[in-house]
Design a protein around this nucleic acid. Structure first.
Length: 339
DNA sequence: ACCTGTCAAGTCTGG
DNA sequence: CCAGACTTGACAGGT
């Protein structure tokens, strides 16, 4: 099994490389010249796209071919007071440049709209803003010229005192979305509410691939033992990806590898928060468990130290390889789990 | 140069 | 019913 590793949103190794520069709304409305303020927002976005390109070039130089964009590329993009603003024409070239690099370097990318994107909500106004938020992310992918293999990963949302009903409401409201939005989504189990089983059922009903977060499962396992996760649920999770590959008409079902998220708990007393790095040993245990049934998997690291954590993990793989632990380091961003 | 409170958005908990 | 927690990097305003 080949495992590709990636990191999220920003680099700690590059200097002056925030891809999430912004302008607060309070600062925006303070500007005397609204047109100039909008130009400033577009400049910031252009700069964020340029930095994003820098980060991806840095990743590619380290053989890292998995990256998640920050959601904060265009400041105030979905703010209700700026609904008359269309930033995309001014940013067309910058978005294209990012998209071209993604394709040229065979980078697998994604977005992760944050917790304001909640399709399980019972409130119509929240549903509307969730759709606006998802639309914003999809438009960015379209502006990059990227195909529907490139997804926005989201969670189901709140339970509102009745998880079953809220899961159903998610599926109902999600499937009512325009295909253009629906077909750009993956669903991930969360750390508090919707566990692997519940998320998988929603993903199957909504007809979208599921991203498995191992750390979320550890802190919100819904009583599912590791063995059950591996034998019972992982094959079904794999199946959601194979179905999507077929729907997209890809050459082989394995053309769209499943995605997992990995992170380590901050401490014994705070097991939910992310630690600076990712521990190799527990991750290896999981990877070994799925290796027999899985050809490839893409593993997103969610660690405070971002790309630095990834580089550190790769060093750990090298040590484990030397110890004969069934790991072979292929390059700076991928390993093979050998039987 | 450095520090601290705040930030557009949602949901849940506890008082 | 409302304030605060959650979680997070960056801004904004102060020293």
């Amino acid at each position: 099994m080949i495992v590709k590793f990636g990191f999220v949103a920003m680099s700690l190794l590059l200097q002056n490389a925030s891809p999430s520069r912004t302008m607060t709304y309070s600062n925006f409305i303070k500007q005397p010249d609204r047109a100039a303020a909008i130009r400033r927002l577009e400049q910031i976005a252009e700069q964020n796209l340029h930095t994003t390109l820098r980060i991806m070039k840095h990743a590619a130089a380290h053989d890292i071919r998995l990256y998640r964009f920050t959601s904060k590329i265009i400041p105030l993009a979905t703010h209700s007071d700026l609904s008359d603003w269309d930033p995309y024409p001014a940013l067309a070239d910058s978005f294209s440049a990012v998209g071209e690099f993604v394709q040229k370097s065979d980078m697998r990318v994604s977005f992760h709209p944050d917790h304001f994107c909640v399709f399980s909500t019972p409130r119509p106004e929240v549903l509307a803003s969730s759709q606006r938020d998802l639309d914003y992310h999809v438009r960015m992918l379209e502006a990059m010229g990227l195909s529907e293999t490139v997804k926005n990963n989201i969670h189901i949302g709140g339970a509102y005192g009745n998880k079953l009903e809220s899961g159903d409401r998610f599926v109902r409201q999600f499937t009512a979305l325009p295909p253009r939005l629906r077909q750009r989504v993956t669903l991930e189990n969360d750390d508090k509410t919707f566990n692997v089983c519940e998320t998988l059922e929603a993903a199957e009903a909504a007809n979208v691939p599921m991203v498995l977060d191992i750390h979320h499962h550890d802190v919100n396992d819904g009583g599912i033992a590791r063995e059950q996760l591996v034998n019972q649920y992982w094959p079904r999770i794999l199946n959601t990806w194979e179905k999507e590959a077929i729907r997209l008409g890809l050459a082989s079902p394995g053309a769209l590898p499943p995605k997992i998220h990995a992170s380590s708990p901050r401490s014994d007393t705070d097991r939910r928060s992310h630690a600076d790095g990712v521990e190799a040993k527990p991750l290896l245990r999981f990877l070994r468990d799925i290796a027999a049934s899985t050809g490839r998997v893409d593993c997103m690291l969610e660690a405070k130290h971002k790309d630095a954590a990834l580089l550190k993990l790769m060093e750990d793989w090298q040590r484990l390889e030397a110890l004969g632990e069934g790991v072979r380091v292929i390059d700076g961003g991928s390993i093979e789990i050998t039987p």
